[in-house]
């Protein structure tokens, strides 16, 4: 039988045959991740943007900081607002995404929630640093993601794109506001132009248990057969071993995916993401 026809008719048997042989449909080793390619500044008309390509998964992230009044409960903290949208270019008829899910399918809301957990709660972004004048003005960082293509591990690509776009995002006050701030707070006031820096440089990796084997960075075909998947977002420093990094986010779905299998992939991917930064 034609391999493509077999894959379409019996996706479970197809993936199982590969797993039993210790191989994968796209020719990768069991513990190899797809290369993560980050393109920064893809949209030059916006303050900060990044495009993350993970095999055939493609995510665009745009970051736009605006000045706003801080929330009443936290007058001395800024806001990070994350949203995820699925583009029409992810063709519903061909992708494993729920058909008829619209621009904001349940999975996209789920990804936005995980990203908020990571970026909006202060683990990576110092929200106090975003405050300009306590109670009066703070940066509201709008981080908007669009999934352009989907082939498994969309959340990994989202985390990578968002982190790349947020890190080093310029925070420039409009001149009128800058002079008003200088007048109000004196010399000790906030500077008119600064840039956002993440507290740690995160790197995401997903592992999936498929027919008893732990696969790193599963593609959509493999993820559909997984009994359990786990996403780890780990903060690493240059030269640090993956095992020593702080786990910033762990999202497990189903039993038993082990992050230790992905350590080598994690270190490699950290270099791909932050090697030049």
């Amino acid at each position: 039988m034609d391999p493509d026809a077999f894959a379409a008719l019996h996706p479970d048997e197809y993936v199982k045959a590969f797993c039993d042989a210790g191989a994968r449909p796209d020719g990768r080793a069991i513990d190899a991740a797809r290369p993560l390619v980050i393109e920064r500044g893809t949209l030059p008309s916006l303050p900060s943007s990044a495009l993350a390509r993970l095999g055939d998964t493609l995510v665009m992230c745009a970051v736009r900081p605006v000045l706003a009044r801080p929330a009443a409960a936290t007058p001395d903290a800024g806001i990070v607002d994350v949203s995820v949208q699925v583009s029409g270019t992810v063709d519903a008829a061909l992708s494993p995404m729920q058909p008829g899910g619209g621009r904001y399918p349940p999975s996209a809301l789920d990804w936005a929630e995980s990203l908020s957990e990571l970026f909006a709660k202060g683990a990576l972004v110092d929200l106090k640093q975003l405050c300009v004048l306590p109670g009066k003005a703070a940066w509201c960082i709008r981080c908007e993601l669009v999934v352009l293509l989907s082939d498994g591990c969309e959340l990994d690509a989202c985390v990578a794109a968002a982190a790349a776009a947020l890190h080093g995002c310029p925070l420039v006050m409009p001149p009128a506001l800058a002079s008003a701030c200088a007048h109000e707070a004196g010399a000790a006031g906030p500077s008119a132009a600064s840039s956002l820096s993440l507290k740690a440089l995160p790197v995401p990796v997903t592992t999936a248990v498929v027919f008893g084997k732990t696969l790193v960075d599963p593609s959509a075909v493999e993820a559909a057969q997984a009994s359990g998947t786990a996403l780890h977002v780990v903060a690493l420093k240059p030269g640090q071993r993956a095992g020593d990094g702080a786990v910033l986010l762990l999202r497990a779905d189903g039993p038993g995916a082990d992050a230790a299998a992905a350590d080598a992939a994690l270190e490699l991917r950290w270099g791909q993401m932050w090697g030049k930064a």
Binding site: D56, D91, L149
Partner: peptide
């Protein structure tokens, strides 16, 4: 630009950017 689409293009006209995908 999009590998899994049958046809695709990223078209930029100054700061207007359109991504088109054909299936």
């Amino acid at each position: 630009f999009l590998r899994t689409a049958d046809g695709s293009v990223l078209f930029e006209l100054g700061q207007t950017r359109i991504l088109a995908a054909v299936f």
